[in-house]
């Protein structure tokens, strides 16, 4: 079942000012419930502009965004309601922390949705359990945490609204390898607990290949490709043409001249095992 549908979305920034922003041109795609969608493309390809339409932060200049088959702009006064259904985690989300304590900060979203007292407390505690914010952190100031922990709390702040679709704009940017792995783990746990649909903007082809069911490729504001990860990464020449690439392990197999191109290390090992087995 389609949970999110983008139809002929175009966004031009107001008043063709000489100081331009990334526009989006005639983009259409459908996201099925429970899918993991990866979005790849250069900085300035319109990825960030595109995702800000999914929760109504930006209004399409032309075209529509449908959530469960209803236009999210049907009633512009109610646009705030969509924000709890489609959560959006911005780049460097730790820069939005502001409350005195971790607990209060995570409560900000659900409180804005109208949750109070016990219901609020239960929701926050539940989310903290899922993403691994330990109870001893609840009363700490978010500003005293390490970089990775700040990000965990900030992501929890969006998840606490229990969105059915959650969008991440480069969730691992600026983190060390352990931090990156932690963030991916948070996303997996949330998905496991809620069956949410996940959309991730990323620069890591390796992560996308390992994680995404489908991949959207953006280029110069237009949708360049949309398909399963395998389909998209089979077009290595087209991807290279716009300055992107396939995962490194796929590159190795391309260099080997094999037709069977793996997307992950595990797949690669399986392919080679089979080949050696066949030969023997």
């Amino acid at each position: 079942m389609a949970i999110l549908e983008v139809r002929n979305l175009t966004h031009t920034y107001s008043g063709n000012s000489p100081f331009m922003n990334d526009a989006v041109k005639d983009v259409s795609f459908t996201v099925e419930k429970g899918e993991i969608i990866g979005i790849i493309g250069h900085t300035g390809s319109g990825k960030s502009t595109l995702v800000q339409h999914l929760n109504g932060l930006l209004k399409p200049t032309e075209g529509n965004v449908l959530f469960e088959n209803e236009d999210i702009w049907e009633n512009p006064k109610e646009i705030r309601k969509i924000r709890s259904k489609v959560g959006l985690v911005f780049q460097y989300p730790e820069y939005q922390l502001f409350e005195e304590t971790v607990f209060k900060d995570i409560s900000f979203g659900p409180r804005n949705m109208g949750l109070e007292s016990e219901a609020l407390e239960n929701t926050v505690k539940e989310i903290c359990g899922i993403v691994g914010v330990k109870p001893e952190f609840f009363e700490k100031s978010p500003f005293d945490l390490s970089g990775g922990e700040k990000r965990r709390v900030a992501i929890a702040g969006v998840m606490a609204m229990k969105p059915q679709v959650i969008v991440f704009d480069e969730p691992t940017a600026g983190l060390d390898p352990k931090g990156r792995e932690d963030v991916m783990e948070i996303i997996r746990s949330y998905r496991k607990a809620t069956n949410a649909t996940v959309i991730i903007i990323s620069h890591s082809m390796e992560d996308m290949a390992a994680l995404a069911d489908k991949v959207i490729v953006m280029n110069k504001g237009s949708l360049y490709m949309f398909g399963t990860a395998r389909e998209v990464f089979s077009h290595s020449d087209e991807l290279r043409k716009i300055g992107l690439n396939v995962p490194i392990v796929s590159q190795v197999f391309e260099a080997l001249g094999l037709n069977n191109i793996p997307l992950t290390v595990d797949e690669a090992v399986e392919i080679l095992k089979k080949r050696v087995g066949d030969n023997a």
Partner: peptide
């Protein structure tokens, strides 16, 4: 502007 959008995404009015 970024912070404003981030807080709006968390339901801030």
């Amino acid at each position: 502007e970024k912070i404003m959008n981030a807080q709006k995404a968390r339901g801030a009015d």
